[in-house]
Amino acid sequence: MGCWTCAVGCKAINDEPLGYWWNRILTTEPNGSAQVATSASPAIDVPHGVFPNLELAYLPVACQHCNNAPCQKVCPVGATFRREDGVILIDYERCIGCRYCLAACPYGVRIFNWGPGERVPDFIIGYGEDYRTEGRLVFEPVRPMGVMEKCTLCVERIDVGEEPFCVAVCPVGARVFGDLNDPQSEVSTLINEEGASQLLAQLGTDPNIYYLPVRHPDKVSE
């Protein structure tokens, strides 16, 4: 419904600086997600069509956690890596800031720390601790200058059995988190029953983020 709660929640839990959004909500056409690059509106809430025949849907976009991730392939130092469970992460101790991944990602979800970043409020409000997985530093409350950052699927939360924060804060249950390998899981069931799609599937990135079709697109007509 385009409320941006997931984006603001993400910004809070990860202490993203001003101007940084790991998670953004595009305004698109209903079920036009496979062509997101061409169908996103120039500004939020601008519908598609000609008055009074209008269509509009909201598309939250963060890291797609691809099985065949271009960002991981181009990384010359192996800083971007894919965990066994499919989460794509950045090792801040290895990243050299070359930004190849920034150019390679077709979803535009990676952000580079050009400077120290201005945070409002100026104290830490989110997870607030360093987090390591497989011994690698994948989250710091304040990311150092010269590294890339992006959605971590809240590894620090999912590793202790909690949902990613965007899922937890969504006021209408539009986001579902679960195990795609388990055919009985809620996510697998929803994908199979409703026919979900991946963003820019034609690129062969094979994301682990699936979008359910808009079942009841709001059509406005006189």
Binding site: A43, D45, V46, P47, H48, F51, L54, L56
Partner: peptide, 9 residues
């Protein structure tokens, strides 16, 4: 100005 078809002429 922001163009939008979401508002009636």
């Amino acid at each position: 100005a922001r163009f939008t078809e979401g508002i009636k002429p």
